[in-house]
Every structure is written in C-alpha cells, then in structure tokens.
C-alpha cells in the first residue's frame, strides 16, 4: 500500500515538474556554441602563468585548490565512515578462513589465472604510477592514477588469493597513505601562510612547460591526492573483503578466497 502511495507521489511530482524542466531545457544555451568566460580565461592564461599543459589538473590542484581540499576531506570522511561501519561491527580481529556456504563447490585457481594476474597487476600498477606522475602534462592525475593503482592491487587479490594478498597489502600502510595524502594537501595549503602569502599560493619554482616537473606546488598536491586515493580505495576494498571472512571461532582450515 505504501509503495503504491509512493509511486503515485512520484507520478504527481513528475507531471508537476515536467513543464518546469522543459522550460529550463529550452532556455539552456544552444549545445556546443556557448563559451564560458571562466573556462576560456583558464585556457588562455594558465599555460603561461603556471607552466602546465593539463588545464583540468591545473584547475583541480591550483586555481580551485581549496575546492579540491574540500573534496579530499569528503573522500577521507567517506573512507573513514566505511571503515568504521564495517570494522566497528566486525571487530579488529581478522581470520584467514573464508565463510563457506554448505554445498557450494570450491573452485581452484588455475595456473594461467595466477600468471596473467601477476603480469597484469604489475603492468597496471606501474601504469597507475605513470598516469599519476604525468598528471600535469598529459591526461591523468592523482585521482585517476590512484584509482588505477587500487585496481591493480585488487587484481593481485584475484591472482594470489586472500592470504597472500593480505600479506602483501597491509591495512596499516593504506591508512597511513590515505591520512598522509590528506595531511600533505592541507600543509601545501597552509605553508604559504607562514611566509606571509595567501593560502594555496604557488610558492615553488614553476618548472618547465611540458616537463615532468611543471606547476610548482601542483606536483606535491598531485602526489598527495594520488597517495590518498590509492590508499583510500584499497582500504575500502580490503574492508569489504574482510566481511567475507568467517569469525575466529570457526576454525576451518584452508586458504580459500
């Protein structure tokens, strides 16, 4: 009954909002012909002013650095919340055995899977580092590179199984990466204040255009974001993985996963 009321409410509000939405759609500037002054100014000024070639990274890490700091804190809060929710209900203890559903067959990992995953995970990891490092020059940056690194670590789990994966990927290291990345970002914002400059002012030498070192403080912020995103995402993966572990009391042998 309540579901029906809810659907009726949705239908009524859709009918009511449709004319409003349509008038907004018609009033929008014609697609592909509107040039926003802000974006055009960024494209015109920033390559010479900051010596970086990737405008998206320049907007994220320098021009609107304070915004990105806010997003970085949202990332930190979401990761912390996920970890607290999952670990808080489960407890700190970890066990090596997986939850087994009775009657479900345990598939063995084939050698080909292990081999391909080792190759692919290594390649993907270095690709992630490459994407993060070249973020200010070519498409990429700390956010993208960090996510690629996290997926490389997940691929490692697919190949190696849970126990080996946990011995390679340490939860404490990930927490430190996540926290240190966020802290470094805040420091980059605050340190200029100590020299009597504005917060987030670019105080490092700007480097050369189209070079790996270009953009001054952006290089540091980019690295901080890469650490925070890689650490945070892998931490989330790890906490969800821990959910599939059996409680310590059941002592089932086997590595599983």
């Amino acid at each position: 009954m309540r579901a029906r009321w809810r659907a009726a409410g949705l239908a009524v509000s859709t009918v009511a909002l449709l004319p409003a939405a349509w008038s907004v759609i018609v009033a929008m500037p014609s697609f592909g012909e509107h040039v926003s002054p802000y974006g055009a100014a960024v494209n015109a000024v920033v390559p010479a002013a900051r010596h970086v070639s990737n405008m998206v990274a320049a907007v994220n890490f320098d021009l609107r650095g304070l915004d990105t700091l806010g997003e970085e804190s949202m990332l930190l809060c979401a990761v912390t919340g996920t970890v607290v929710l999952l670990r808080g209900a489960r407890g700190e203890e970890t066990s090596g055995s997986a939850i087994r559903l009775p009657g479900r067959a345990i598939a063995q990992r084939s050698d080909a899977t292990i081999l391909i995953c080792r190759f692919a995970a290594t390649l993907l990891f270095f690709f992630g580092v490459y994407v993060a490092l070249h973020g200010l020059v070519t498409p990429g940056g700390g956010f993208q590179g960090g996510v690629v690194i996290a997926s490389a670590l997940l691929l490692l789990y697919l190949g190696e199984g849970y126990a080996h994966w946990r011995s390679i990927v340490r939860g404490r290291v990930l927490s430190v990466l996540e926290g240190a990345g966020a802290l470094l970002f805040v420091l980059v914002g605050l340190i200029p204040l100590a020299f009597g400059k504005a917060a987030f002012q670019n105080i490092l030498p700007l480097g050369t255009f189209r070079d790996l070192y270009a953009g001054g403080t952006m290089v540091v912020v980019n690295a901080a974001v890469a650490c925070a995103v890689a650490g945070g995402f892998t931490l989330i993966l790890l906490e969800f993985m821990e959910e599939t572990r059996a409680p310590e009391t059941e002592t089932e042998p086997g590595e599983g996963g």
Binding site: V35, S36, Y38, G39, A40, V42, N43, M55, V56, A57, A58, V59, N60, R64, G141, F143, Q144
Partner: peptide, 9 residues
C-alpha cells in the same frame, strides 16, 4: 571548458 571537467573528475 576545463572547469566543468575538473568538477566531473
């Protein structure tokens, strides 16, 4: 426009 792309990212 790079600004909206940064927002989407």
């Amino acid at each position: 426009d790079p600004v909206v792309q940064a927002l989407v990212l």
